[in-house]
Simulated assay, not measured.
Amino acid sequence: MADDLFAKARSAMRRAHAPYSKFPVGAALRTTDGRIYAGCNVESVSFPEGWCAETTAIAHLVMDGGGRIAELAVVAEKLALCSPCGGCRQRIAEFASPETRIHLCDLQDGVRRTVTMGELLPLAFETASLGDAS
């Protein structure tokens, strides 16, 4: 089922703007209602002010009205398995549940390892911990 996410993530990775790190990354997420959003990393000369691929995909989700992430795939050109950075882990947690599947993909073979969001970020900040957020 994650093959389509891998393909979208790989396609997004090819559009990455990574002239400084030379480290293109792509991500694609599927919402609980089946919509798919992809993103790539976008670097800035004012390092580290760029966007990660996961952040870009989440921005597309938000711009389309939001939703919950059911699963997400990440692929990088230079790593066999690319795991979301710490900041992206928290961003993903904002739109996911601890059971959300995170697929770490190999550029050539697709999904190589799947973890849950709870495994990736076991002590995520939660809205409830902020008190009355309304």
Rank of each mutant, 00 (worst) to 15 (best):
D3W: 04
D4M: 11
D4W: 04
L5S: 07
L5A: 12
A9C: 12
A9T: 10
S11M: 07
A12K: 06
M13F: 03
R14S: 15
R14V: 08
R15N: 14
R15A: 15
A16I: 05
H17L: 14
A18M: 09
A18G: 09
Y20K: 11
S21P: 00
K22F: 03
P24G: 12
P24T: 09
V25I: 15
G26M: 10
G26K: 07
A28I: 06
A28H: 03
A28V: 06
A28R: 03
A28G: 10
L29V: 11
R30A: 14
T31E: 11
D33H: 07
R35K: 15
R35S: 12
Y37D: 07
Y37A: 10
C40F: 07
C40A: 15
N41T: 12
E43Q: 14
E43S: 13
E43T: 09
E43P: 08
E43N: 12
V45Q: 09
V45E: 13
F47G: 05
P48L: 09
G50S: 12
W51I: 08
A53T: 03
A53M: 06
A53F: 02
T55N: 09
A57W: 02
I58F: 06
A59S: 13
A59E: 14
A59L: 13
M63F: 01
G65C: 08
G65L: 07
G67L: 07
G67I: 04
R68P: 00
I69Y: 01
I69Q: 01
A70C: 07
A70Y: 00
E71W: 01
L72E: 01
A73I: 05
A73M: 06
V74E: 01
V75E: 01
V75R: 01
A76M: 09
A76T: 08
A76W: 05
K78F: 04
K78E: 12
L79I: 06
A80P: 00
A80F: 04
L81N: 08
L81V: 11
C82V: 04
C82R: 03
C82Q: 11
S83I: 10
S83G: 02
P84W: 04
C85F: 11
G86W: 04
G86Q: 10
C88Q: 02
R89H: 00
R89E: 04
R89W: 00
Q90D: 12
Q90L: 13
R91V: 10
I92R: 05
A93F: 10
A93V: 05
E94F: 08
F95T: 04
S97K: 11
S97F: 05
S97P: 00
P98W: 04
E99F: 03
E99Y: 02
T100G: 10
T100L: 10
I102L: 14
H103Y: 01
L104P: 01
C105M: 07
D106W: 01
L107G: 02
Q108H: 11
G110Y: 06
R113V: 13
R113N: 11
T114G: 02
V115D: 02
V115P: 00
V115A: 09
T116F: 06
T116V: 11
T116G: 12
T116Y: 06
M117H: 05
M117L: 15
G118A: 13
E119A: 15
E119N: 08
E119Y: 06
L120I: 08
L120W: 03
L121E: 07
L121K: 10
L121G: 03
P122F: 10
P122C: 12
L123N: 14
E126R: 15
T127W: 02
